[in-house]
Design a binder for these strands. Structure first.
Lengths: 349, 349
DNA sequence: TTTAGCACTCAGTTAAACAGAGTGCTAACA
DNA sequence: TGTTAGCACTCTGTTTAACTGAGTGCTAAA
């Protein structure tokens, strides 16, 4: 167990290192107001803390640097929530002040403000499209050979696909098709669309329309909504400013990872616990994230869905500030998105 | 006027520098097959070339480096079009082989292949949405308070906006509204939509609908299509690999510029001449572009529109290869996009 | 006109010297 | 027994000097 003095020293070391990015030595610690003991005593304590694995030396005679275990302890036990400055708060408020009607717009703004206030990279995962339900399906013929299929969901998301009209399908067929699809598919979650189409509609189609299987194929294609929800970024390049990325090679590795959204998705998605989760360095199980921490905030959206906000920064991240910001913004974003998802009473049945 | 020998030397210097990024000295030049004169003679010629401003020294006793004037001359007079490798060509063909129905998809793929084949950053400006004509306007009510407006254009572009339903507007009103809008606005270029709405529709609305001006305001808002077309990028981070950006500060300046799409738009847009245009270093009139060249290819799309492909690389760019690639890809992209814009014969009237 | 030769210049690398920040250990102190 | 002053030691980083290598410009001879 750590003594109070050790806790204090560990905290001050980490706070100092987060600020300066320089190894912290005993002498500079002893000069701090909150620490009234001599550098020699501090050295003894630091030696113990090192033995316990909370801090490390970069070389034999260097100051100490927090280890991942140290950060973990710091986040779990030493963190005092930072009180945000009025300036920050009003900046956030100004973003959410106006009522905005596009989900993408709100989410993108959230990502932007978050990266601007932290100088790290922000990643926002909007509500899960897969759970959206079909509100209306429409087709607009563009020429004799092609048409646009439009699916509007209950949350106001619009998905459109251009497709080739199957040979011999005329405007009337198309209209009938749309009628059938709407009759049968309104209310279906997007994720089930593909299956439903095959199960139910196929039979109906065969009855009504001539060359039904080429048509079925086309529609199955159209209804295939992307597996992943879109990720929104803010400050993608912000990490360039962090001294841990002065080595351009490290920066490239990180950037490559970010651009392969697949792997990023993995990192962000599994936060099912809800609330705020901090993953430090190797805890992320991704080589590109070795020097990074990821803080994710999962928040509820009306209709039982979830959204996720995340901040990617160096392990030497301002945890306290970031967590406070995530708390505030995730609450605001939760409200803003929920308001989009509100349905008129008669639709709750 | 330059002698043949000077032309040869200039060309070899630039070719060599483009390959190696190192200043080129007289001795290494004299060892090349194509140059059969002694290093001393080369030194004399280089001295002349420097006096004329085509090459520069980085310090008193260094080899020579092409100046911007040198690159300009090289591009204008010395460039022999590179014959692309079969491998590159088939890679391009594979991208355009399948018939794709979404404009965004095609354009994004073009940007990607272009950046992969060059290792520079590619920027693609798709067809001008502003000139698209309204094909169909639809409204889907989401709740009692809000609805989605959807505008489909003749090229298959779908634009959607969520909006608040004006108080006291019921489903019937909305339907009537849509009917009127379609009657009057189908065929209108998006850029004129806003004006047309005020000019013609306002009068009609007043006749049909009660609180017409709050409605008008809402619709004017909806019909306000973004001023700029979307830019598509490939290899945004590729410049990180170029030795001229080993100074991280330069990289940041460039990246900041790229992210401010506004200024990038300015750089790319004004290529109205058509065909391929090369802007070297300061010719771009943007501090962030000092060490960069921009090659743009403007190509026609069916219906009198234009698209633009651009490659952003260091001034020490493989001009010849990039130009060849742009030629090939812009032709393919032109075809691919034009095919989307084909209309059925009866619509050409 | 071309070229060989030579003096000179500059960047980059290596090696040594040195300063600064830090540690660990010991002995004295409270 | 915990705390502290003092000192030897270690390692990094910076400065300085010497040296190497690549390059130029100039001159004189072919």
């Amino acid at each position: 167990m750590l003594t109070n003095r050790q806790l204090l020293i560990l905290q001050v070391i980490i706070d100092d290192f987060i600020r300066s990015a320089q190894p912290v030595g005993s002498r500079s610690l002893s000069k701090k107001e909150e620490i009234q003991i001599s550098s020699a005593t501090i050295r003894n304590e630091m030696s113990d803390l090192e033995e316990m694995g909370f801090i490390e030396k970069t070389h034999t005679s260097s100051g100490r640097v927090p280890s991942e275990k140290g950060y973990r302890f710091y986040v779990d036990h030493l963190l005092s929530p930072q009180i945000l400055q009025q300036q920050d708060i009003s900046q956030i408020q100004s973003v959410f002040a106006e009522r905005i009607y596009e989900m993408e717009n709100i989410v993108q703004r959230s990502a932007k403000i978050l990266s601007e206030l932290t100088n790290y990279t922000s990643i926002v995962l909007g509500p899960n499209l897969q759970e959206n339900r079909v509100k209306k399906i429409q087709m607009v013929p563009l020429s004799e050979e092609s048409a646009i299929a439009i699916i509007v969901t209950d949350t106001g998301h619009v998905e459109s696909r251009r497709f080739s009209l199957p040979k011999g399908m005329n405007a009337e067929d198309l209209e009938q098709m749309v009628r059938v699809l709407n009759d049968r598919l309104v209310g279906t979650p997007l994720i089930n669309l593909h299956d439903r189409l095959h199960q139910e509609i196929a039979i109906l189609l065969r009855r009504h329309i001539a060359n039904y299987d080429s048509i079925l194929k086309v529609f199955a294609e159209i209804m295939n909504v992307p597996v992943h929800d879109k990720l929104f970024f803010g400050g993608k390049m912000n990490m360039i400013n962090q001294p841990e990325f002065s080595d351009i090679e490290k920066l490239r590795i990180l950037m490559d990872m970010i651009d392969r959204e697949e792997s990023l998705y993995k990192l962000i998605r599994p936060n099912d616990g809800g609330g705020i989760q901090v993953k430090i360095g190797k805890e992320n199980e991704n080589i590109a994230m070795e020097n990074c921490s990821l803080i994710t905030a999962t928040f509820p959206i009306a209709g039982g869905q979830k959204g996720t906000l995340a901040i990617l920064g160096p392990t030497r991240m301002e945890y306290s500030r970031v967590i406070s910001l995530l708390n505030v913004i995730s609450t605001d974003l939760s409200k803003a998105l929920s308001s989009l998802y509100e349905k008129s009473p008669d639709e709750w049945t």
